[in-house]
């Protein structure tokens, strides 16, 4: 019963919101691709391997890295010049993703990765 009650309490807290303001996630492309970019961007009619909207395929780590860096959506070391950051912030164009906006926390970790040279780590 104690375990069940703890589970209920944790569920209520999670549903209502929890977590701190500090983001200790490492700004690594392997994490960003798997947990942020692929679920948000590689949907069937957008940047999946099937559709490749805008010529950009983000369906896995290696393909996504190649398309973002070689497609000049990411300028290593320069988040302010990187189109991917401008697109997520709707600066001058349609916001990406066009259905569920990225959180500032996710945009910040992507910017940190770009600042660090955008390695395929």
């Amino acid at each position: 019963m104690g375990t069940f009650l703890r589970l209920v309490v944790v569920t209520i807290l999670a549903a209502a919101g929890c977590g701190g303001a500090t983001d200790d996630r490492p700004p690594k492309w392997s994490l960003i691709s798997a947990t942020i970019v692929e679920p948000s961007c590689a949907t069937v009619n957008c940047h999946s391997a099937i559709t490749r909207r805008g010529g950009v395929d983000l369906h896995d780590r290696e393909t996504g890295y190649y398309n973002l860096v070689n497609g000049f959506y990411v300028y290593p070391g320069k988040p302010g010049d990187s189109a991917v950051i401008a697109l997520m912030n709707a600066q001058g164009s349609t916001r990406m993703p066009p259905d569920v906006p990225m959180s500032e926390a996710d945009i910040a970790i992507i910017a940190s990765w770009i600042t660090a040279g955008a390695p395929n780590n």
């Binding site: 549903a15 919101g17 977590g19 303001a21």
Partner: peptide, 17 residues
């Protein structure tokens, strides 16, 4: 309906409601 998704439970800013 009320929906909640939190991408990382340790970071409050990753929530979507």
């Amino acid at each position: 309906a009320y929906e909640r998704y939190q991408e990382d439970l340790s970071v409050s800013g990753t929530a979507r409601t």
